[in-house]
Design a protein around this nucleic acid. Structure first.
Lengths: 160, 160
DNA sequence: GGAATAATGGACCTGTAATTCCTTTATTTC
DNA sequence: GAAATAAAGGAATTACAGGTCCATTATTCC
């Protein structure tokens, strides 16, 4: 895959936060809607918090919110916060004595440069509106319908 | 990373085979020169053999050879043989009821399409000559010099 | 045919990403 | 201040890519 599971999940979450820019969204809500393991998403969001892309608010009515308007957050911001896509700047074989990369690694780095550029050029806002197709995150159905598929957070359990 | 370690190693090996298109190259030789764990490379080459990109020849003077001229093998061929880069063709969230992808996944798929195109457009032959820079695989030094860094295949041991 | 060379392949180990579980801390509401 | 909500975070587990080891099979050379 071109991006890790962690990045994919993080992007889904960020898109959801974009859609609800005004009010905080809980991990549970995002996990359910984005089909992401809740505990794992929680970890990812902690990372995004440290990267200052989102802020957390505890307690009732709390959840996560974007720190900046979606138009000012790029895909690259998110990707780099989760796991920086590292360009090939020097020969992976560690051979000294030449300045530029060999053709193979130059090609690979070019590919990454292309991706990087595309990610830098795309803001969360772009994802929220740019099309005539389905709304972001594929959710044309009401959220309720999606939640039915989820294992609900234990109706009768003592979950904290 | 944009490509896995397995793909990176495989590409290195294929480039080395390109450089020695006439005569077979052994796993040991490629492992040493490409700084790849020999046993692991062996597995990778077995995969490339099954994918009909290389052929193996056992015994003295044996090794691996490309099945086709380097000009007829693309980066995409190699990548797909090792681990196919899978395009996003339907919504990863499995939500039915819409034909096209949501903006996020459309973007991600676009990125992959770009990579795919670049890989399809580049042959092994391209990597062997296209530049004025360092020769392929960063090796401007004589191979001997590189081998000195390697743990040699046991001068005094009973390795089979 | 025996010795050396080299790929084949199965089994196993290892490190890291992905995931779960549970306890703690902060915040709100009543 | 008690109860409920929600994030924070440590610890452990699982899954899989990456990597090792060793015995086997094929091939060449003498």
């Amino acid at each position: 895959m071109i991006i890790s599971q962690a990045v994919e999940y993080s992007l889904r979450a960020m898109v959801m936060l974009t859609q609800s820019f005004e009010e905080p969204v809980t991990v549970q809500a995002m996990a359910a809607r984005g089909q992401i393991p809740a505990a794992y998403l929680s970890k990812l969001l902690q990372g995004l918090t440290r990267a200052r892309l989102v802020t957390a608010q505890r307690g009732v009515g709390g959840g996560y919110t974007l720190t900046r308007p979606p138009s000012q957050i790029t895909l690259a911001d998110v990707v780099n916060a989760v796991e920086p896509l590292q360009r090939i700047k020097k020969c992976p074989l560690g051979i000294a004595g030449h300045a530029t990369l060999c053709p193979l690694h130059r090609k690979l780095d070019e590919a990454m440069a292309t991706i990087e550029a595309a990610f830098q050029a795309t803001t969360l806002d772009d994802l929220g509106k740019d099309t005539g197709g389905p709304v972001p995150l594929c959710s044309t159905e009401p959220i309720v319908a999606i939640n039915l598929k989820m294992k609900l957070p234990a109706v009768n359990a003592s979950r904290g």
